[in-house]
Amino acid sequence: MLTILFDGVAYGMLLFVLASGLSVTLGLMNFINLAHGAFAMVGGYVTALMMDRLGAPFLLTLPVAFLVPALLGVVLERTLYRRLYGASPLDQVLFTIGLVLMAMPIADFLLGNEAHQVNLPAWLSGSLSVYGVGISRYRLFIVAVCGVIAAALQLFLVRTRFGAQLRAAVDDARVANGLGIDVDRIFAVAFAVGSGLAGLGGALAADVVGGIDPSFPVKFLVTFLIVVTVGGSNGILGALFGALLLGVLDVAGKYYIPSIGAFIVYAVMVVTLIVRPQGLFARGDGR
């Protein structure tokens, strides 16, 4: 029982890191970025390839798995995304679906369509027994890393000047500009961090989901959207709670009532949208 609960928490934490970037672009910047999963895929590939081809240690690959998609994010944001801030949701949807459709064949062309595995180092394999509860070392590692990231993000957004500036820029870009805030730069940084986190999430998730392959952006797109929808899109904490709730429900559901399976997650999402369109954990009235 506890093992399942723990697996669920670990899965939820992973979902959180994967989706947190989306909750920034979608929730804060009101940009529907369906290509978010492509950045996660890049991160996953970075880790898999560095370990495979260069023999780099797992831990060393993680910062790179963050940096590469973050850089890619900045480039795309500066050249393409920024033109669509304030465009209609339909345009944003079409544009980002277009990016996904391009990203998948590119990955396929460069790296082939079979899944690339991330082989965990020995110290992260196997499991420990804590008071008779079997806990996978890797999942413990995920919980720890993701927990630190969640805490750091929350502090970053709430306590720092950057966080305040971001919130001001999102609230009213014109006024923020007038106050001397460099809105362009703020958005670019936020987008980069979000993309980088997706990449890191992709690297961490590779083992759990059975490797990274070109269909990754679409396979998990829906999951990301569900996390953000359920968590509510105006804060990191909401996304965290949403991700944990879904992680636990999904793992427990698949274990205990396999005949229902994914149904639970979709149902939670639809019910949330009916009862609280702003998300279960959203504060205030939302929009």
Partner: peptide
Amino acid sequence: EYWEFWIGLLLVVLV
């Protein structure tokens, strides 16, 4: 294998 790429490109250009 790659026809989706061109559809994606078409979309991006379209928008």
